[in-house]
């Protein structure tokens, strides 16, 4: 049983500008999976004009357009210490795409402009020559950060970005990319202590119920089983679509290589 007195507070950071790709769904999924276990949860939207308070349990950042990412970068600088303090004192951060990039040291945009990140993660991102668009399949990295339950099964998502992210020495990716691009060098995202960064939309926690539970357990501890057969069916269906696309791409690349 999950003995938890207080309501889970899920912060959706800058939904008006980091909300272009449906990533607000991650907040909804965390709240719902908590509620289905009798844990009260509320979603708190934090707009870019407001400071981020450090008292929440989750901070979720999503993907956005270029102009939006500039504004998000400036606003995050002002709330940098609050966010880092929240994370150091037990809060979970889940960041996707543009929001993920801003957790690193910097993001160099396609027009050459340099956005300063908050440096929570030792990594830098540059805009690549091409946009990576399509299904992604990731094998989660084994890591003590997953907790006693261990890594989740294969992760599925949809990427749509031009970023190429270089992780610093010793920084662990979320996993190894089996299909798709991710960070652009074999891995995708970042897995830290109570920290998940990724390029995957879908939203990623809607498509990956076990991953969603790992993230939830980072705050509430071990979770009781619930009937999530529907969510698991979606996960399996997305994985088979992702693998089929992977095989198709592999075949196309082979044909191209042959000339």
């Amino acid at each position: 049983m999950n003995a938890r007195e207080s309501t889970l507070r899920i912060g959706l950071v800058y939904p008006e500008i980091l909300g272009t790709y449906g990533d607000r769904g991650n907040a909804l999924i965390i709240a719902q999976r908590a509620q289905r276990r009798g844990i009260a949860a509320e979603i708190i939207e934090i707009y870019a004009r407001e400071p981020i308070s450090s008292g929440l349990d989750f901070y979720l950042l999503g993907g956005g357009e270029d102009d939006s990412q500039h504004i998000a970068a400036r606003s995050l600088q002002e709330s940098r210490s609050a966010l880092i303090e929240a994370h150091n004192t037990g809060a979970v951060i889940v960041a996707v795409c543009a929001g993920f990039q801003l957790l690193g040291h910097s993001y160099e945009a396609a027009d050459g402009s340099l956005l300063e990140g908050i440096g929570l993660i030792d990594m830098i991102t540059r805009a690549g020559a091409n946009r990576s668009i399509g299904e992604v399949v990731i094998e989660a990295e084994p890591s003590p950060n997953w907790g006693t339950a261990g890594p989740p099964p294969l992760i599925t998502g949809f990427e749509n970005h031009g970023g190429r992210t270089q992780l610093g020495q010793g920084v662990v990716p979320l996993g190894q990319v089996k299909v798709g691009t991710g960070n652009g060098n074999g891995g995708d995202g970042v897995l830290g202590e109570r920290l998940l960064g990724t390029y995957l939309h879908g939203p990623v926690l809607a498509r990956n119920p076990v991953l969603a539970d790992r993230v939830l357990s980072w705050v509430v501890g071990p979770l009781e089983e619930i009937d999530d057969s529907l969510e698991r069916r979606l996960h399996d269906e997305c994985l088979s679509r992702g693998s089929a696309q992977g095989v198709k791409r592999w075949w196309q690349n082979r044909m191209l290589a042959r000339g």
């Binding site: 790709y21 607000r24 909804l28 939203p203």
Partner: peptide
Amino acid sequence: GKDTSWLYD
């Protein structure tokens, strides 16, 4: 559109 993430918007 091949990405259904927009359902959450």
